[in-house]
């Protein structure tokens, strides 16, 4: 989908509503990084590390072992500490310990509780640029309400302009079952798959499936079969009756 993956040093935003797989995707990004020799840090503001270790283990990722080998760190803290600008930064010790190439912040939405909406964009910019200056690729999780109707806005505070790539995850209801969809909305400096694709959370992580080619309106919350598919269904129905 990304024609070779995220670009080095880029800031990527993964947006989606609760329970759609953002944390799994973020962890997979870091675990794959370790496999490629790129240590990573996972910053969490809400979920406690012991839950993350447990959930990751269910997907076959032993994060404690990666930590022991100085390839990975989980930092659990409060968002306001992340925003402190005086003196040593919260992450400096982890930066020294493992020299990370990747970082996940789960989630950027928590900063809203500590800064005014008008200052959020400036603070997010400062954080992104701090990481870019150190040459660290970042994946920033954003909890967004469902994108419905004709709106494709990812954040309401204009953060989309600050990041290089936006991946949106969305649960969709099709034929009375909940399925998960993923789309790359933006990717600076590289071509990418524009199609909305289905994904599944498997026992080994996220697996991207085929595109929702037979449906339209999936991201707006009103998926319906495209006309040609409806015609094919009618045709199949008629053929069945003749038998």
């Amino acid at each position: 989908m990304l024609h070779g993956g995220f670009m080095e040093g880029d800031a990527v935003m993964v947006a989606g509503s609760a329970g759609c797989g953002k944390t799994t995707l973020a962890l997979q990004y870091l675990v794959n990084g370790v496999k490629l020799g790129e240590p990573g840090i996972y910053v969490t503001f809400e979920e406690m590390p012991d839950q993350i270790y447990r959930d990751a283990k269910n997907l076959g990722w032993d994060l404690r072992k990666l930590e022991e080998n100085n390839k990975f760190r989980i930092v659990c803290t409060s968002p306001n500490l992340m925003l402190e600008s005086e003196g040593e930064s919260l992450l400096d010790e982890s930066f020294r310990d493992i020299e990370p190439r990747r970082i996940v912040v789960d989630s950027l939405s928590h900063l809203v509780m500590f800064v005014k909406e008008s200052e959020l964009r400036r603070e997010a910019y400062r954080l992104i640029m701090h990481l870019k200056t150190k040459g660290i690729s970042s994946l920033l999780v954003w909890e967004s309400p469902q994108m419905t109707g004709g709106s494709f806005a990812v954040t309401e505070v204009g953060l989309s302009f600050l990041v290089d790539c936006i991946v949106a995850l969305k649960p969709v209801e099709i034929e009375s079952s909940m399925r998960k969809a993923l789309v790359v909305l933006k990717m600076r400096g590289s071509d990418h798959d524009k199609r909305l694709r289905e994904f599944e959370i498997t026992p080994t992580g996220i697996k991207i499936e085929s595109a929702f080619t037979n449906y339209e309106g999936v991201i707006t919350g009103s998926p319906r079969r495209v006309a040609s598919e409806k015609f094919m269904d009618l045709f199949r129905g008629a053929a069945e009756k003749r038998k």
Partner: peptide, 16 residues
């Protein structure tokens, strides 16, 4: 011990 990556203020640690 369960959350070795916890870095927080006294008040926030207490809340946890």
């Amino acid at each position: 011990h369960r959350n070795p990556g916890l870095i927080d203020t006294l008040d926030s640690v207490a809340r946890r």
